[in-house]
Each structure stands twice: as C-alpha cells, then as structure tokens.
C-alpha cells in the first residue's frame, strides 16, 4: 500500500491540476508538462534540481532526528543562517588564503555555527524548561538580523561601494563543481553523506535507538534509563549542525558570497520535506527532490506560460495536500497491522 500512495497522489494531482488550469484558461496538459517535465528534461535542469534540493535535504535530515524524538526544533532557518555566518566569516577575515584547508575549515565552522545556535534552545530547554518551539523560532529572526548587521557593516566588501554584500568567495573558499557547465557542487555530496550517516546512526547505533524509543515511548525510554536531556541536546545539536552545513554549502556554493538574505526559507520548507519523507532518510531524499521540483516547475510555468506566481503557489499547496492526504492509506495500514498483532 505504501508504494501506491505516491501514485495515487500523483493521479489526483494531475486530475485536480487539470481542472484548476482549465478553469484559469491554460492548456492543462501544457501546464502540467511545464511543472513536472520541462524543468528537468535536460541535463542542466536535472542538476538544478539537485542544487535546489541540497539545502532542503540537509535541513530536513537534521530536523527528522529531532522530530523522531519529539524535539520541536522549527528554527533550522536560523541555524542555517548562523552556519553561513560562521563559515563565511573565515573567508571574510582571510580572503587571501589559498590553502586547501580553507574550504574544509569553512564547512566545519558552518556545522559548528549551526550547532551553537541550536545549543541555545537546547540549553534553555534542559536548564530552564523553555519550550524549544518558541526559542528556536525567535532565534531565526535574531539570526537574520545578525546577518543583516554583519553584511551592512564589518563583512561588506571594501570595494563594493558599501552595498551590503561580502567579497565574492575565491576558488579555495568555494565548493568544487561536480559537473562542468552546471552548478552541481560538492554540497550535494555532503547532503548524501549526511543522509547515509543519519540512516546508519538511526539503524545501528545506541543513540539512534534512544532517539527512536524516547520519541515513540518516552516512558519505556525512562525505564531503560535513557536520558531525556541527553536526547534533547543531541537532536538539537545534530539538527543545528546539518542546517549549518546547508548554510555554508549555499554561501560557498551557488550563492558564492554573504548576502543579507541567503535562504528563501529553506529551514521552514525543510519541515514539510521531513514529514513528507515520513522522517525516513530515503523518504527525505525523494521528498526534497519533489519539493524542489515544484519550485522549479513554478518558475518554468511563469516563464513559458505567463502564469502568475500566485497560481504556482496554489498549485504547489495542492500537490502537498494530496501527498499528505494520502497518508491516510499508510495510517490505515498501520491500523490493520495493529489489529493483526492484537488479535
């Protein structure tokens, strides 16, 4: 049944999409083709899909660990931003360095920055019992303003007419391109490694086991002597580090410099991706790619069909509704299983 879900969602999407587009007077077949096929029907488009999905997958894989443990970090956007600030700062202060260790150091700093920003909600939660939904969300705004402060001041390019942006990163501070002539960069490999690591961690390690137990059966976890606080710390730091990696892989990847706004809300969209992928590492890869495709499709439909962004937004929401609604089949399947076991 779980395999039928996406197919059913797709069928329903196509049907409703056809209705919506016919209603708006657009050729529905053409519209759907521009949404789902045209963006990726060539090599460049396919790599762009990966470029767009990379930060989404990185943030989502980090969040998924916390969500499994019922730790509600919704501030990945802020952790992404601070990761970009930390990693980017290294270049800003040492722009001349051509060392091969430059990029690895930036990546490491990015992860540390994200983890540090997530450590604040972790500390406030474990020490003061402050709800992480609020603290992590509020820190998003603080992080965005911090980035704005830095690129309007100390981080800005001295030769840039005082416009709010840093120098463009040099080659030694930039993610290597994987495929000549495209923007596919090393960040996608980082994302893939992150997914694999998370998968192994959840399946094979004690901490992964603890995360799952605390999430599904907190009481059992407590009896087993698992520390709730340790899990809170672990999942927030892990989620923050992943978001930080997303941040640095964006700024030293396709962005190529520090700007006042470095993410169109990847940290928030990643929450959808995490759940769309059912918090499973492989599911998150597919969900990230699909989410990225709806964005690419929206752009293509605007360019080729003159469709306003409002329509593409409505359609994107609809696609998500269907995918999420089809969970009903998955859930019913669990129900049947439960009955089966109970009987």
């Amino acid at each position: 049944m779980v395999y039928i879900t996406p197919i059913l969602a797709l069928t329903l999407t196509i049907l409703t999409g056809m209705l919506l587009f016919s209603f708006l007077g657009v050729d529905p077949v053409e519209a759907l083709r521009n949404f789902f096929i045209v963006p990726i029907n060539n090599q460049y488009g396919a790599t762009e899909l990966l470029v767009k999905a990379t930060p989404l997958i990185l943030c989502a894989i980090g969040l998924s660990v916390g969500f499994r443990a019922n730790v509600w970090n919704i501030g990945a956007e802020g952790q992404l931003t601070v990761g970009a600030i930390f990693g980017g700062a290294l270049f800003v202060y040492f722009p001349e360095t051509e060392s091969v260790f430059m990029l690895p150091a930036m990546i490491l700093l990015g992860a540390i920055g994200g983890a540090l920003w997530a450590a604040i909600p972790a500390f406030l939660k474990t020490r003061f019992n402050a709800n992480e939904i609020l603290t992590s969300l509020m820190l998003v705004y603080v992080a965005t303003l911090l980035l704005s402060l830095l690129v309007h001041g100390p981080f800005r390019d001295p030769d840039g007419y005082n416009f709010p942006e840093s120098k463009i990163f040099t080659d030694s501070a930039t993610m290597p391109i994987l495929l000549e002539g495209t923007r596919l960069h090393f960040g996608s490999i980082i994302a893939l490694l992150a997914v694999l690591t998370t998968w192994i961690m959840l399946a094979k390690t004690l901490i992964g086991f603890q995360v799952k137990v605390i999430g599904t059966a907190p009481k059992a976890g407590a009896y087993a002597g698992f520390s709730q606080k340790k899990i809170i710390w672990f999942s927030l730091l892990f989620g923050g580090a992943m978001a930080g990696l997303a941040g640095i892989s964006e700024v030293s990847g396709p962005v190529g410099q520090l700007l006042p706004s470095i993410s169109p809300g990847y940290g928030f969209t990643a929450i959808i991706v995490a759940f769309l992928g059912r918090l499973h590492p492989v599911g998150i890869i597919f969900a990230g790619l699909l989410m990225a495709l709806t964005y690419l499709g929206g752009e293509t439909a605007q360019i080729n069909l003159g469709m306003p962004v409002a329509v593409t937004g409505v359609f994107q929401g609809m696609v998500l509704f269907y995918l999420l609604a089809c969970d009903v089949f998955v859930n019913y399947r669990f129900q049947l299983n439960r009955f089966g076991k109970a009987a």
């Binding site: 969500f67 928030f268 969209t269 929450i271 959808i272 995490a274 759940f275 769309l276 937004g313 409505v314 994107q316 929401g317 609809m318 998500l320 509704f321 999420l324 609604a325 969970d327 009903v328 859930n331």
Partner: peptide, 15 residues
Amino acid sequence: LMANQVATGLALTLF
C-alpha cells in the same frame, strides 16, 4: 484523512 499536522499546516500557508 489523518495527514501530518505540522506539514499540512505549512502547506496551508503556501496555499
């Protein structure tokens, strides 16, 4: 339909 509440809420915002 028992869809996930967090993700559905976010999708509702996009919509």
